[in-house]
Computed example of a mutant assay.
Amino acid sequence: SEAVDWPLRSAIWTGKIFLYVGLFLGVGGAFALAWLAGSGRAGQRFVAAAILSGLVASCLSLGLQGLDALGAPLSHLAQSVVWRTGLDTSFGWTVLVALIALGLGLLSLAGPRATAKPSALAGLAGVGVALAASGHASAAEPQWLTRPMVFLHGVGIALWAGALIPLGLALKGQSAGATPFLRRFSWAILPVVAVLAAAGIVLAVIQVQTPAALVDTAYG
């Protein structure tokens, strides 16, 4: 069997984890601050740090994906052909859209107050588009169904997970806006969880198909 390049594999997964942190906790957190927190700013530094880590990770992930596609080791990361190859993969679209989404999330934090909500909303949509642009689930047939489901699943995760840190810090600090923040979150999260669960079930049925595949396949 073909030998696994564990340093590269580890780097790829580390990059993806930080990319997801940026998208879910960063962009999702920016949305929560803009739409749910009112005038509260609890957790803004964490959200900004998550977005910045996502920006770095998304750029590095592009090169790592190129290495994986070429079967090259980490020592070749600086070669231009590696980055071109990464950009030519479907993951290249994910990185490009993710960079836009992360930038919009950062703009909602640091830009004019009037642009915070539209920037955060556009960034949140970008999270879904980025995830739907590549990956095993989004590439499965029928794509007219799987890609929208991945979009909804990604947006749902960002909405839910992104609000947790700002909300938790607001409640811990007992700020004046903590209770309204909690009320808005509680009102919004029920339909979000419903959509998140429905999209997850649809994707699981399409990908797994049979109960036995839950233990017989890597996806299961």
Rank of each mutant, 00 (worst) to 15 (best):
L171N: 10
F91G: 00
L196F: 13
L67P: 00
T89L: 07
S75A: 11
L19F: 00
I206M: 08
Q207D: 10
L214C: 08
R41G: 11
I189V: 15
L62T: 02
V47E: 08
Q44P: 00
L214N: 10
A178L: 03
V47A: 07
G40E: 14
W144V: 14
K16C: 04
L124D: 06
A158S: 14
G220R: 06
L8V: 11
G71N: 03
L121P: 01
V82K: 08
S58D: 01
P112T: 00
L152H: 04
V27F: 05
F31T: 10
V56N: 01
Y20N: 11
A30I: 05
R84N: 08
S186N: 09
L67G: 01
V81F: 04
Q209K: 15
A194V: 10
A213H: 14
A122H: 03
L99W: 10
A170Y: 06
F24H: 11
T94A: 03
V208T: 14
V202L: 14
A69Y: 02
P112Q: 09
S10G: 07
G66F: 06
G156P: 11
I12R: 07
A132N: 10
A50C: 15
A110P: 00
G63R: 04
F24V: 13
A213S: 13
L77F: 13
L74P: 00
R84Q: 15
W35T: 13
F185W: 15
L171R: 12
Q207S: 11
G135Y: 06
L159C: 14
L203G: 13
L190Y: 13
S80G: 11
A212V: 14
T179F: 04
H76G: 01
A42F: 03
A101G: 11
S58K: 03
L171S: 07
G28L: 07
L159M: 12
A78T: 05
A116S: 15
L124N: 05
G66Q: 07
G15D: 07
A197V: 15
L67A: 02
A116D: 10
L55G: 11
V129T: 09
A212P: 09
L23S: 08
L55Q: 09
R9A: 13
V129S: 04
L74H: 04
R183S: 09
C59H: 01
A110H: 13
Q209I: 04
G135F: 05
S10N: 10
A49M: 12
A34M: 08
R9F: 12
A116I: 09
R147Q: 12
E2T: 03
W187C: 00
A30P: 02
L131N: 04
L19W: 03
P166C: 11
A48R: 13
K16H: 15
E2K: 01
G92I: 02
L131P: 01
A120M: 07
